[in-house]
Design a binder for these strands. Structure first.
Lengths: 235, 235
DNA sequence: TTTTCATACCTGTATGAACCTGTATGCTAA
DNA sequence: TTAGCATACAGGTTCATACAGGTATGAAAA
């Protein structure tokens, strides 16, 4: 499988693919011209063309003579940290985030790593459809309590981002695990929160991240709308 | 100096290994070219190559023709398991495999990579519960047709394994993608095949693997019993 | 206003040189 | 016999360069 050893053309293809999948370059957009890419990657044009060839083979772009290369991949990927990417199948859907609570609580979710009752920072968030107000994701993060979390309770997340908040405190995830399964029926409580009908199946994603020393950084349970969300991974 | 009875190639391997393990040369870095190493160690190229061979056998480097040798030590890359591992939550369950068909057909599954109607080898399999006979997974593999697939139609899979069958023909997966999503309702046809009730939600796993050149090796759609199967990944 | 055309920019293609690994062969010395 | 050396050639990767032909645009001409 893919070693870190890759040719320059493969590197270029991988970088561009990431940009396309992450939505930085959207479907229908024209890619930079080959000559621009030559400057950007500081390689020869033949190498750029080889990289584009790889993307074309994968069906991510099509190129037209005299015009340029177009992105022909429609999906969007949100949350493409390490591990799985959560892919939003409908790139039209505009999402907004609502924070349900940021609080210091006793751990109330059963999880094999953080014992019930232990002191945690809880961040519960919902992402919902801008137009309909329907909740599409429900995300519950639990982080072992630290003294420097105190001002998060009053000031909120840094730039609205949990990862930035952690990073500002020098908490860096080094490794982790992820599980995905089908939640057969959405419980009534969650359904109420999300504005959905109870009993629907959902895609449940669970993630545990650790520091290099092995200490737990974050435990997250996400319930995702099964119609709009899927998981994606390249290897 | 202690007489270690060490050949020149072993010395070279040891010195380079020290440099890698000490971090002087980091993962992903390219090693000096063989000709540079010839100058540095003042030995012939065959000796250098023997030394590199030792490192490659140890998994410390990988070499690519036309490019060079790369350090691949570091732990993160070694994970040769491609993609997700499918975890069976109930380890008690004994599974048996039934092959539904091995046939040369025109592509009939809609997939963004293999156009409808193209010539493929189709292998459909069901894994089912030994005791109850209930189908737990339904797996549909599609591989672009090759002339040397002909005897698969008569002789079946090598050792009952598709990967072995491909490997025997020198078809090796180099990279790929995987998707997972919730299939809201199991279609009646599949339910019939699997001996399940239609309309249940299932976990649908899709995987596409490619050769180093980007050609498609295999496209697989798997429907998994959502109660028994989950996905797991460590990163 | 419409047509034509020069121009700039784009992709497609081809070439040779330089450098890389893979492989084979014959020779020398311990 | 084996490790090592020297050499040669095949084939992949990258670079630098050149030229052919498609596309878009704005200026000039009809």
């Amino acid at each position: 499988m893919r070693p870190t050893a890759e040719s320059k053309s493969e590197t270029i293809a991988r970088v561009l693919e990431d940009e396309i999948r992450s939505g930085a370059v959207r479907e229908g957009d024209t890619l930079e011209s080959e000559n621009d890419l030559v400057v950007r990657f500081a390689v020869s044009r033949s190498t750029i063309r080889k990289g584009l060839q790889i993307l074309a083979t994968k069906g991510l772009i099509t190129t037209k003579v005299g015009i340029g290369s177009f992105v022909t991949f429609g999906g969007t990927v949100i949350d493409s940290k390490s591990g799985w990417s959560v892919a939003l199948s409908d790139s039209e859907a505009r999402l907004q985030t609502r924070i349900l609570r940021i609080a210091r609580v006793a751990m109330e979710i059963t999880c094999p790593y953080l014992p019930l009752g232990c002191d945690v920072l809880a961040v519960d968030r919902i992402r919902f459809h801008e137009a309909t107000g329907r909740g599409l994701t429900l995300e519950r993060s639990r982080m072992p309590w630290r003294a420097d979390f105190a001002d998060v309770l009053t000031a909120g997340l840094l730039d609205g981002s949990l990862s930035k908040t952690l990073e500002a405190r020098d908490i860096r995830s080094h490794s982790g695990e992820e599980w995905a399964r089908v939640l057969p029926a959405l419980p009534a409580v969650e359904a109420e929160l999300m504005g959905r009908t109870p009993g629907e199946p959902m895609l449940r994603l669970t993630r545990l991240t650790r520091t290099a020393a092995g200490a737990i950084v974050e435990y997250v349970e996400s319930d995702l709308d099964p119609v709009l969300f899927g998981l994606h991974m390249a290897f």
